[in-house]
Simulated scan of single mutants.
Amino acid sequence: MAEHDELFDYLRSTDTVHIVTTTRDGRTIPTPIWAVAVDDAIYVRSAYGPDAKWYRRATTNGGVAFDTPAGARAVAIEAPNDAGLEARIDDALQEKYAAEPASVAEMLTPLARGTTQRVTPVS
Rank of each mutant, 00 (worst) to 15 (best):
A79N: 06
G84L: 00
A41I: 00
E86S: 13
A74D: 14
P69R: 10
I77C: 06
Y97N: 11
G49W: 10
R45N: 06
T31S: 13
R45P: 00
Y43A: 01
R56M: 15
A79K: 10
D51G: 15
E95V: 11
I19Q: 02
G71Q: 10
L85Y: 04
A112M: 13
V20I: 12
P50M: 12
A58H: 05
G71E: 10
V119F: 00
V104N: 00
S103H: 10
L108Y: 04
S103G: 15
G26Y: 05
Q94C: 10
T115I: 11
P32M: 09
R27L: 08
A92N: 08
A37Y: 11
V36C: 01
L93T: 06
A37P: 06
R113P: 13
T109K: 09
T68M: 14
N81I: 03
D82I: 04
P101F: 03
A41S: 15
A70W: 06
E100Q: 14
D82R: 04
K96N: 10
T59P: 01
T21C: 04
N81V: 08
A37G: 07
T59D: 08
Y48A: 14
G114M: 09
A92H: 07
A102G: 08
D67K: 12
S103V: 00
G84N: 13
A92M: 04
R45V: 05
G71D: 11
R27A: 12
L108M: 12
T22L: 04
L111E: 13
R73I: 10
G84I: 07
V20M: 07
I33R: 06
A98M: 08
E106T: 03
T31L: 01
G49E: 09
